[in-house]
Amino acid sequence: MDNKAPTHILIIDEDPQMRRLFGGKLALENFEIFYAKDGLEGREMARRFRPDLILLDLNIPKVNGIELAERLKREQETKDIPIVFLTNSDLTLESQKAAKEMGVSDYIQKGIDLDEFVIRVKKIIGFSIDEN
């Protein structure tokens, strides 16, 4: 992989302030950010742009986060894109286990310190790049 090419991240969240906050922080770190506001748009953007990472809120309209993650992990075009749940919700241990079994790479609470958020995102993308 060409390490100088920009890394693309898709943020799927219905709250425009959340999109601007996390997208803004990642853009300051030189990532290229795409946005989607619901599950249908998210799937469309993922299939079209094949981002290097998807940050996915669970409470999105039209197709919810869990259902969208399952779909993306099932479909040929998108199954290898790492997905991270970025959420306000508290995931139960059972949900965390289910997410892992589904192939979701991580789940991050939105209240996280933004610098810590960037470190975790870079770790996931770096890890995926090495694997590929």
Binding site: D15, N88, G111
Partner: peptide
Amino acid sequence: HQLRAPLTIIKGNLSL
């Protein structure tokens, strides 16, 4: 849940 979201926005923007 609804209170958490704007508090997260405020925290994040203050940090930025």
